[in-house]
Simulated scan of single mutants.
Amino acid sequence: MAITKRQITIVLSVLASLAHHPPKPPHSTNRSPQYLAALSSLAAYALHSSHVYSLPIPDIICALTLALPPLAGIVLETVLTLHNTLAQKGQLHSSRLFQITLTAFCIFETVLATLAGTHISPPGSLDCALRERWTELFSAKEGEKIARIQDGFECCGLRSVRDMAFPFPDAGHGSEACVVRYERDTACMDAWRGEERKVAIMLLVVPLAVFVWKVAILLSPSSSSAFLPSAIRLPSEDGQGGSRSRGAIEYHDAEGVAEEGEADSVRAEVNRLNKDSNVASYVEGGRVKAKNGLWQDHENWRETQ
């Protein structure tokens, strides 16, 4: 199957979004590339923030969230193109593949949204993971990472300005070295927790936005014929899969149709029913008369005996 122009546009737009230069769409009415590029940029920013501030959010969640928008765009476009191609050939059994693909993406998006939601609320439950992360950095003497957190939020230490702060205590200076050097009086816990929640919200928005985008694509008039089962599609005008569709039931006014002489009008149907009723009445009347005549002949015969 040949690669469509829209597939190429989606791939190029996603790659360009990572370089912060999203391309213009080939048509002004097609907003999908920009939409997916914006979601990719949002996920890329979340991944960057999580890495810079050493947040206790697994990198795999950020990476999968970053891959979701371009993957959804390419796969959905490919499946729709395949379905339309097979539909034109009269082979509509690809609907099962389409349903499996949608189900898989729904599960994927639900898992990502759930994992991201665990880093949003309640705030008190986040403190444990943050403290464990800071303790790991402090124990491994990751001074550069701790300094990056402290410089980013202009703070010192975790719960207090002396709690595992950088510079680390040594023979030359004590735990107050950060306060003395930078003249800061704020601990990092609150600001660090707020950054984790902000990144988690961005990671939650991306799968939800991709889901909304898929629903909008599938419900759009241009895509409805690609995923609706053939049993509920409206028949075409010429019966050969033409582009013009018609309703399954058509209504015509009796007066207008009668004046146009159409045979299937309501008045013509009523006339046919009346004619059939008259014929039935005539036949039934003849049958009754014949029966009465036979009965009268029988009575006359008995009287003569």
Rank of each mutant, 00 (worst) to 15 (best):
V283L: 14
L64Y: 05
G117P: 01
E284A: 13
K291H: 01
F211D: 03
S13L: 04
G73S: 06
P207M: 09
Q34C: 05
F98N: 01
R193Y: 09
T114F: 15
E142H: 00
R31K: 13
A187I: 02
S222N: 11
A171H: 09
P26S: 12
L76W: 06
S95Q: 10
I217E: 14
N292E: 01
S224T: 12
P69D: 07
L126E: 08
E176Y: 07
S49A: 13
V288W: 00
H298S: 07
M1V: 12
A216H: 10
E259F: 06
F168Y: 11
A38C: 15
T118V: 06
I10G: 03
H48R: 10
V288K: 04
N300K: 11
P25M: 04
V52F: 14
F108D: 06
F211W: 09
L234N: 15
C156K: 08
Y45R: 07
T78G: 14
L97M: 09
S236E: 08
E262S: 08
S54Q: 13
L130D: 03
K289L: 02
V257F: 06
H21T: 09
A200K: 08
V212N: 04
A116L: 06
A67D: 04
W301S: 00
I60S: 12
K24P: 05
A46H: 05
L158K: 03
N274D: 09
S32R: 10
S121M: 09
R272H: 11
E176S: 13
P70Y: 05
L234I: 03
P167E: 02
A248M: 08
T78V: 04
R197D: 02
S277Y: 12
S225W: 12
S32E: 13
T85F: 15
I146V: 02
N278I: 14
W295E: 07
C178W: 00
G157E: 02
A171S: 13
K145Y: 00
I232W: 04
A268S: 10
V75G: 02
A280S: 15
S277E: 13
D170W: 04
L203I: 10
D238K: 07
F153C: 03
C62Q: 08
A147V: 00
L97F: 12
L47Y: 05
R96P: 00
K5H: 11
H48K: 10
H173C: 06
K24N: 12
L82M: 13
K198V: 15
A147D: 00
S49T: 13
G174A: 12
P70C: 04
G293I: 01
G286R: 10
M189F: 12
A19V: 14
D151G: 03
S222F: 04
G152N: 01
I120S: 03
E77A: 15
P229W: 03
